[in-house]
Design a protein around this nucleic acid. Sequence first.
DNA 1: TCAAAAGTGTTGCGCCTACACCCATGA
DNA 2: TCATGGGTGTAGGCGCAACACTTTTGA
Lengths: 231, 231
Amino acid sequence: MLAVVLRITEPVPSVLLWQRARDPHRGRWALPGGRLGPDEDVEASVRRHLAEKVDLAEVAHVEQLGVFSDPHRGPPPRRIATAFLGLVPTDADPTVPDDTAWHRVDRLPETAFDHGAITRDGLDRLRAKLSYTNIGFALAPDAFTVSELRDLYAAALGHRVSATNLQRVLTRRGVLVPTGETAAPGPAGGRPAAVFRFSEHGLRVTDPFAALRPPGEPAAETHPAPTRPGS
Amino acid sequence: MLAVVLRITEPVPSVLLWQRARDPHRGRWALPGGRLGPDEDVEASVRRHLAEKVDLAEVAHVEQLGVFSDPHRGPPPRRIATAFLGLVPTDADPTVPDDTAWHRVDRLPETAFDHGAITRDGLDRLRAKLSYTNIGFALAPDAFTVSELRDLYAAALGHRVSATNLQRVLTRRGVLVPTGETAAPGPAGGRPAAVFRFSEHGLRVTDPFAALRPPGEPAAETHPAPTRPGS
DNA sequence: TCAAAAGTGTTGCGCCTACACCCATGA
DNA sequence: TCATGGGTGTAGGCGCAACACTTTTGA
């Protein structure tokens, strides 16, 4: 059980790592994790081990990444790891143990075993899901402006993102809802920004693939239909 | 290690199952698989175990599905299974051992443990990937007409598919190439159909998601650009 | 000449990008 | 009033679904 726990720290995401105090790979940085217990499934196990490093309430989403089982992925004894992706919103700044720290994914220290490659797999998964799911709910604070959200997406994806189009894509999909409030402008002035929230806090596919859908269905209903037409 | 090996048998896909001769769950049907060996990774292991049931050369694609680890997914001792999806083209009709048979996924017999649920996961994965990858190469024979391919897709997806649009989608993506040959018409006559092949026999994402791409890139290059403009 | 099956032309729609333009604030 | 940042309007393009129409065969 290993977890790639990511949190967006602009301009680049960071991953939670702890420094090994013992051989093998003493001094190198490793992903949090541990052994599977006798009466838990892998999801419960990874949550239990994560609780030693961060406040679990701050981990907004967890999902399986895959199994890493190359017999030579580390020194003997042979270990098989089921890797997970965990996401922490930016407004939670967990206190972590002394041996544990956030590391920018573009400046990873020397990692233990194959944990560098697993981290890259986790980041790839996050980037893919940002495009076709509402997974941003697990990165963003409870309420935010579109500019703030754009910066989060840009940091996660590694390229610039247009606030204009981000807002339209996410509202069209029913992912974002306005709170009705506005944020105070910065010291340089400017129009106050509208404040939004994610409409749901569970993972949902918002962009089902266009091709090869069943005939006669115009497009999947990606968000609840309005109760009254015109309301 | 367990494998959901699927093969399209119109009008519905079938999955490879073997009948348990011993308790627990004697007489029920189970997915092929077995224990991980000391010096192999899970991919190698699932291939090794599959070789006991089918000719491995006929399994055109294998990928990880996920880990199933509910402590109560079966009677003690507790077992953790890494599940895989395997695909066999229709032109390969493997001979299988006496205890082993193909079963239509809409008429599964009583399955052992949670193997029914795992089978459904495998089918869901196949259906999703048919929409945005070239995974059809692992279902179709080496050469085929568009009508034959449409029937394969329709069986796999569980709904009707338009041959017209299937051809256009797959050729636009560079997935299908014409061999230049034509198939003989049926006894009722009709225009002879052009014969196609999949351009590649490795998995490739052909429909990267439209939203939130880097700015300035019109659309991902999904197939090799023509060597000379206009040719 | 007709039925059957394959393949192409064309229209319409939805989603996305890009960019021009308008709005609301602090100085 | 101007600079600054937020938000909307709109045009263009692309991919896909649907369906009419043409092509090529056997009887």
